[in-house]
Each structure stands twice: as structure tokens, then as C-alpha cells.
């Protein structure tokens, strides 16, 4: 399989700030690739390096095997759905969507037909005459999507495209985007700071931290086998056990992760270790119980229907040994 995008030791430094630092990355053609990380981790800069709005200070970027170091944004077969949509405020929806063909010199009839086709694709038929200001957030998002797809890009970049939408709309759009990507077969590169979004949508995801990629893998790999304590913490708020505790539980003396949902609370002395319940949080589908084991806080998920212990109670903690994942990184 060809790679849609490859980074070879790509860096983007601003003076002393290393926004992106020696990143190696391959994005497979036709995949839905997510870049996940907290703000300032370098994920958006990576996206802008692909689109050409940023130039690498070192390293090489290839799109479908072609070096694009010398190619300005307007000549890359890559289009972007911007975070705030960046619709042209003075144009109506149709002209916004037809903009790409227009600057490419496509005639009016043809480009308007194309725009209508794209608007139908994002279920906005009949909205062509409206101005962006007259649309809701969700509709603007669709226009931005139609506008970016009209040029038939080989890679579509999405910069936190769902960030401004409310929860319900966001979930609906997640499904739609996924379906759209399947149907069109284009490579989607998706930047988000929302781990649920990344896990539920992506085929592959890269977790960014401080300008570097902490881990690349499929969602289940990243979720179940986090490479570093940072990944464990950031993707799904896993418990991170210090080396001393891991060793005590029978593992190697290294950092380990343990999912809250893998833990069962039992009577004191009946589990692999003992602790004191520090706090309880009711989540609806269950309760999240914080147990202090010495200095370490361990979170456990107690499903609804099961009795949750009270704060201050002494409990035992148990889990399948296979759930304890010893990490390589520090």
C-alpha cells in the first residue's frame, strides 16, 4: 500500500520553541488518520505542514511519494476543513463551494453544477443562495466540508472540525464523516484533542506530546497497550502505576497502566492489594471510585447495579493479570 503522507525527521522550530521535533510519520492511503494530543502538542502544526501553511525547518515531507518542500499550498492536491471553517463571508454558499473550480478556471455552469453536487453530498441542497452568516454552526461545517471536497483532493485535512459543535451534533457528524470517508475512499487526516473522537473514528492514530509522537497505532493498540504514562493518562484516563507498585504486583519494575474498567473491588484482603476509598463520583452508567494505595491513586469503575463502597472504607483491589500493561517508555 502506498503512503498518502510521509514525514521524515520533520521539525518545525520557532527559535527555541520546538513545535514539531524530528517527527517520523506515515499515513496510509485511504485511511482515517487521527492526530491526538493536548493543545500545543504539535498536532495542528503537523497538519499545517501537510497543507503547506508552515514550512519545516528540517526534514522532508512527501505526499504520495512526491517531495513537497518546494510546493506552495495552492499547488498541493490537499484540502483543509478549517477549525473556524474560514468560509468567505462575502460570498454565498454556492460561490464558497465553487471557489476552488473558479480559481482553477472552470466555467460558471460547470462549477455551479459541481457545487450543487457537493452540497447534495453534505445534505445541504437548496442552501446555495444563503450567506455563511445565515447558517447554523453545523451547516457551516458542512459547507466547509463541501468546499474542501469539491477539488477532489487526494488528502483531506480536518482541523478540529467538530470542536465548535454541541455534543449531539458532534456525535451525528462523527458518524457522517466516517461514512463519507468510506464512500469517497480519500485519506482523511483529522486533528483533535478529544480522545473519544479519535478512538471512535480513526483507523490509525498518533498521540502527540511536546512536539513529538508518543505513540502511533490502531485505537485498540493505543488504548490497551499505551506506550508511555502520558499516553495512558491522556487516552482514556488510565491508572498509571509506578515501577515499585508494578513490581509488588508481580510485574517488572517499570511503569504500568491499568484500565479502571478492568478493576473489581472486593473485601479487604481478598484482592491483589488493599486501599482506602478516597472519593466517589457517580457517572450514571456506574460510579468511579478513587482508592488510595499508599501514595498512588487507583481509579476503579463500578458498574451500575453493583454496590459501591463508601468513602473511607477499606477495600481490596483485584484484576486479571493480563490487564496489567507494562510500558516500555517512561
Amino acid at each position: 500500500m502506498t503512503n498518502a503522507v510521509t514525514f521524515h525527521k520533520v521539525s518545525r522550530h520557532y527559535g527555541k520553541v520546538k513545535a514539531v521535533d524530528a517527527v517520523d510519520l506515515s499515513i496510509a492511503e485511504g485511511s482515517f488518520f487521527a492526530m491526538l494530543g493536548p493543545s500545543g502538542s504539535g498536532k495542528t502544526t503537523c497538519l499545517r505542514l501537510i497543507s503547506g501553511f508552515e514550512k519545516p525547518t528540517a526534514g522532508e515531507i512527501r505526499i504520495f511519494g512526491q517531495d513537497v518542500s518546494d510546493t506552495p499550498p495552492n499547488r498541493r492536491s490537499v484540502n483543509t476543513v478549517f477549525q473556524d471553517y474560514a468560509l468567505f463571508p462575502h460570498m454565498n454558499v454556492r460561490d464558497n463551494v465553487a471557489y476552488g473550480p473558479m480559481v482553477a478556471g472552470v466555467g460558471k455552469t460547470e462549477r455551479y453544477a459541481k457545487a450543487e453536487e457537493m452540497l447534495a453530498l453534505v445534505k445541504l441542497d437548496g442552501y446555495g443562495d444563503r450567506k455563511p452568516g445565515q447558517l447554523s454552526g453545523g451547516q457551516r461545517q458542512r459547507v466547509a466540508l463541501a468546499r474542501a471536497l469539491v477539488n477532489e483532493p487526494r488528502v483531506l485535512l480536518l482541523d478540529e472540525p467538530l470542536g465548535a459543535l454541541d455534543l449531539k451534533l458532534r456525535e451525528a457528524m462523527q458518524d457522517e464523516l466516517k461514512a463519507l470517508q468510506k464512500r469517497l475512499g480519500i485519506t482523511f487526516v483529522f486533528v483533535t484533542h478529544d480522545q473519544h473522537e479519535a478512538l471512535s473514528m480513526a483507523d490509525q492514530l498518533a498521540v502527540f506530546n511536546e512536539g513529538k509522537i508518543a505513540q502511533i497505532g490502531s485505537p485498540s493498540e493505543v488504548y490497551d497497550r499505551p506506550a508511555t504514562p502520558f499516553v495512558a493518562n491522556f487516552v482514556g484516563s488510565s491508572n498509571v502505576l509506578p515501577p515499585s507498585l508494578t513490581a509488588q504486583l508481580g510485574g517488572a519494575a517499570a511503569w504500568a497502566s491499568l484500565r479502571p474498567e478492568a478493576i473489581r473491588l472486593v473485601a479487604k484482603g481478598k484482592g491483589k492489594m488493599n486501599g482506602t476509598v478516597a472519593a466517589l463520583r457517580y457517572l450514571g452508567a456506574g460510579s468511579r471510585v478513587s482508592v488510595m494505595v499508599g501514595e498512588t491513586e487507583i481509579a476503579a469503575l463500578v458498574p451500575a447495579g453493583e454496590a459501591a463502597p463508601e468513602a473511607g472504607a477499606e477495600v481490596g483491589i483485584t484484576f486479571e493479570t493480563s490487564a496489567l500493561h507494562v510500558m516500555a517508555g517512561s
Binding site: 501553511f53 495552492n74 473556524d84 474560514a86 477539488n151
Partner: peptide
């Protein structure tokens, strides 16, 4: 918004 000019370049405008 500066992104508007970026959007224009992104869509192929010089």
C-alpha cells in the same frame, strides 16, 4: 480572519 486567506490558497488560488 487570517484563515480566510489560507482557505483561499488551500483551494488553489495564487
Amino acid at each position: 480572519s487570517g484563515a480566510v486567506l489560507e482557505a483561499s490558497a488551500d483551494l488553489g488560488a495564487n
